[in-house]
């Protein structure tokens, strides 16, 4: 049994809505089902695991980064990069050290993104996958640094980048330096793109704030998982600002396709195949 999530109560709707079965399992002491927030039915955990955390109604549960890497890359192909980078409390923000400690315990990871190389359906690529149970995937200097290094590596080796986003945005606890990561990662994306390389972004629930306003929206191809919340401002903030309830489906992946900001919905069934096909279609004849 995994213990992730055991140490941390959900603080808000975003965190609650995306509970992984692992969290629920720890909470309910091995109760073998999980309530689906979409169809409100209890789903057997075994079935859910077999179905890549997708309910029979189509609801996509949140996935941890390692699970996702297992799910999307060819077995044994993933090779992690910069796994040891750890955040510093640069601006001495109250409670940050403690929060980092909790995040490390809750997620079993050192930071909110995992980067590396691997193959998808036989095609080599660089991969970044954000981790929802590490401070809601927020971007501080380490997340920015790891993603920048990944794009720089991909540029140097003429490799495509496939990136899975899940994030509440820039990490408040690192102050302005978190904001600077938006510009830094965008610069790295730009250089990778100028060299003629492919970047596919896959937006998963939720992708908001500074991530949407930087590398999430900078892909050559932008895919999104069904029902994923994607936006700049969070729905609660908008509701507070305009003092109105938001319409059903607002800021969901399907809404972004309708508005022209996302290329395609990519359900987990067929997601790996779709990525493999896209990578193959962009394979360079002259590449070494």
């Amino acid at each position: 049994m995994q213990l992730q999530g055991f140490f941390k109560k959900p603080k808000n709707e975003l965190e609650k809505g995306g509970r992984t079965p692992a969290n629920a399992m720890a909470e309910a002491h091995a109760e073998p089902s999980e309530l689906c927030p979409s169809c409100k039915k209890a789903v057997l955990l075994n079935e859910l695991w077999d179905n890549n955390l997708v309910c029979s109604c189509g609801h996509h549960f949140r996935m941890n980064a390692r699970q996702r890497i297992d799910f999307i890359t060819d077995p044994g192909s993933f090779c992690e990069m910069d796994g040891d980078l750890r955040a510093r409390d640069v601006i001495e923000f109250p409670g940050y050290e403690k929060k980092l400690k909790h995040a490390r315990l809750a997620s079993g990871e050192k930071e909110a993104v995992i980067c590396g190389t691997g193959t998808i359906g036989g095609s080599a690529c660089c991969l970044f996958v954000m981790e929802p149970s590490f401070m809601m995937g927020s971007m501080g200097t380490v997340v920015g640094e790891k993603i920048t290094r990944l794009f720089e590596y991909a540029t140097a080796h003429s490799l495509p980048v496939v990136g899975f986003t899940v994030s509440g945005g820039a990490r408040m606890q690192e102050g302005i330096l978190s904001l600077m990561q938006m510009a830094k990662t965008s610069g790295a994306v730009r250089r990778h793109s100028d060299a003629g390389n492919l970047y596919i972004a896959v937006l998963t629930d939720p992708t908001t704030g500074g991530i949407t306003a930087s590398f999430a929206m900078e892909g050559d191809i932008i895919l999104a998982e069904p029902g994923a919340l994607i936006g700049f401002a969070g729905p609660r903030v908008i509701e507070q600002t305009i003092r109105k309830k938001l319409p059903e489906g607002f800021q969901r992946a399907e809404f972004l396709v309708e508005r022209g900001f996302v290329d395609r919905i990519a359900p987990r069934a067929g997601q790996k195949k779709l990525l493999a096909r896209l990578l193959q279609l962009h394979e360079r004849r002259t590449a070494q």
Partner: peptide
């Protein structure tokens, strides 16, 4: 801050900012 409202989201506030970051970098 960038305006936060229904129209801003519908017209891609995040995308507009992201595009500026990329374009200004080059």
């Amino acid at each position: 801050g960038a305006f936060c409202g229904i129209g801003a989201e519908e017209r891609g506030q995040g995308q507009a900012i992201a595009e500026n970051l990329v374009e200004m970098m080059g």
